[in-house]
Amino acid sequence: MNVNTLQIDRKMVTGREGDAIFAVAWEHGIHIPRLCHIGGLSDVGACRLCMVEIEGQKRLQASCLTPIQEGMVVRTDTPRLRQHRKLIVELLLAERNHICSVCVADGACELQSLAAALGIDHVRFRYRFPTLPVDTSHERFGLDHNRCILCTRCVRVCDEIEGAHTWDVCGRGANSLIISDLGEPWGESESCTSCGKCVQVCPTGALFDKGKTIAEMRRDRGFLKYIVTARKEKQWIG
């Protein structure tokens, strides 16, 4: 295994050849913001929040998909990056109906805490206020499209870990929606095994345990590491 040495935020770090900048940075305590990445699932570079500056390159790069290179000089937190991240989060907030004070995920939402961390106290864009449904046809879970940011964590966990591939994305651009099977109500899905993994990985209040009230939704993601290491390394660690 080859090891590369590089600089991230003026810190000398090392990582295995082929590892993404994002992963190496986190291993060294440098927490690059993200919403679509979650450890244990493949990366898709959908949210663009983990963009970094690489010396010698004009374009920003998504750190979750960019492998490290020997001698690379990376910056993860510059005024330019902060501006971009703010913009992205504001656009996400304006795109659907995010009203944190009456959301099941209030207080435990990755979008909300990222907005707070970026100092977003208002949104510069006009809200779209789309009319979107809530699907509570499943016996145990609900999907509120109003809170979905299309990160596709649910799609990937269902496909890669559970193997059911219930979820997918339909439509284009801002009109995209997460669908179960071919667009049936979730409760009628034949592929869903009701395992609840999607609910646990959702970063926002979009997927929730039915019966949860405002600010009551909390998630447990320990299962991801457990299953992934069990599969890859045949080790069953808690």
């Binding site: 004070s101 809530v134 509570t136 609900g142 039915k210 019966g211 949860k212 009230t213 405002i214």
Partner: peptide, 14 residues
């Protein structure tokens, strides 16, 4: 309208 009834206490308190 269209929201889950479990949300109502928090929503209505507003």
């Amino acid at each position: 309208e269209g929201r889950p009834f479990h949300e109502m206490p928090g929503l209505m308190s507003r």
